[in-house]
Design a protein around this nucleic acid. Structure first.
Length: 349
DNA sequence: TCTGGGGTCCTAGGACCC
DNA sequence: TCTGGGGTCCTAGGACCC
């Protein structure tokens, strides 16, 4: 099964065996795996499953740190007396998610976040891997540096230039060498990771920090008007979500990508947070002026926008309106006029 | 691997403040 | 202004993750 037509968003393990990867162009994916069933995404179903999954997570451990829709860290330290050993809790969790949600769940169990994360990756699909404290280095050291959580292509390439191809080799690179190459903080972090010495705690997380939307396109000549229209469209999409969540933000970022895959971002901060489409679009369009020549020269392939510096959520009075008639829009407009557009969210209380 | 859409975090310089 | 020490915010860019 391949999810996504133009670009692969996800692929089943059978398709992956034939070389299909997420992010790959759809035509190439179908060439590699002609017998695949191609389906469109169903985000509502994913959201529902995610909510149910996290309810099970929270029922399993007091501290749950979400990483994405379908991934989280659970701190099971200190639960031995109540729920049993970590490995037992993990096995129970897998059984329960399989039974109640009919979903396979892979779990990694370890003393630290990075090793647990890497173990869960190694346990896929549908497995459980426990890395006992005394076997951490045995697990870690044979792996390529790129498999460390947080080490991507750029860092891996740089590490390989230093002669560190495996995590074991990285562990023998002196700390000062890493600090010189990657800076104080990243250098120390890599040094620690290779030793299995990740001290980060599982936390509840800080909540969302930004809203964004983007649209990709084939490069061709575009008038300023066309680009402005794309910006408005992208901002509309994002502010709709912001309003639905009752959030507003102060900083708007315009993101562009060019035919040569170079990227560029311009941002501007307002004095007051807002979720108003027109305001944010005007600011974003204002950022266009000094990058127009760049667009002209390189060809535009992506227009994106993000709103950050979000206002803290305030627990105010909330009104629930049932969309019963045409008059709803009038009512919403009145509320917007009196309390600002950030006060209005559609759907949900 | 020729690349979609949605996110997070870090670094670094400059302006500005006490 | 040939300025110490401590801080915040803004902007741009980069790396990484799912």
């Amino acid at each position: 099964v391949i999810v996504g037509g133009g670009v692969v968003m996800a692929a089943s393990y059978e398709a992956r065996d034939r070389g299909v990867r997420s992010g790959m162009g759809g035509s190439k994916a179908r060439r590699l795996c002609p017998q695949a069933v191609v389906v469109g995404p169903d985000f509502d179903a994913y959201s529902r499953a995610s909510r149910e999954l996290f309810a099970v997570f929270r029922d399993t451990a007091p501290t749950v740190e979400g990483l994405s829709m379908e991934e989280a860290f659970l701190d099971v330290g200190g639960l031995e007396r109540i729920s049993g050993e970590p490995a037992w809790i993990a096995a129970q969790l897998r059984r329960r998610v399989r039974r109640e949600l009919e979903l396979p769940l892979s779990v990694g169990v370890a003393r630290s976040k990075s090793i647990a994360k890497m173990a869960s990756r190694a346990a896929k699909p549908d497995g459980l891997l426990v890395v006992a404290p005394e076997r951490e280095l045995e697990f870690l050291h044979p792996l390529p540096v790129g498999s460390l959580w947080g080490v991507g292509p750029a860092t891996a390439a740089k590490l390989e230039r230093l002669g560190a191809h495996s995590v074991g080799q990285l562990a023998s690179v002196p700390l000062p060498t890493l600090v010189e190459a990657f800076g104080e903080s990243a250098g120390r972090h890599l040094h620690a990771l290779a030793r299995g010495a990740d001290r980060r705690r599982v936390t509840r997380g800080r909540g969302r920090r930004s809203f964004g939307a983007q649209t990709a396109m084939r490069p061709r000549r575009r008038t300023r008007r066309e680009i402005e229209r794309l910006i408005r469209m992208v901002i509309d999409r994002l502010t709709r979500r912001m309003r639905a969540k009752g959030r507003s933000g102060r900083t708007v970022t315009l993101r562009l990508r060019f035919a040569d895959y170079r990227r560029l971002a311009r941002s501007r901060s307002l004095s007051q947070p807002t979720a108003d489409s027109a305001t944010l679009a005007t600011v974003a369009i204002g950022l266009l002026d000094d990058v127009l020549p760049e667009i002209e020269r390189r060809g535009l392939t992506l227009v994106g926008a993000a709103v950050s510096n979000l206002a803290p959520r305030h627990a105010g009075t909330q009104l629930a309106l049932e969309p019963a008639s045409e008059r709803l829009d009038g009512a919403l407009d009145e509320i917007k006029g009196r309390f600002g557009s950030a006060a209005v969210g559609r759907g949900g209380p």
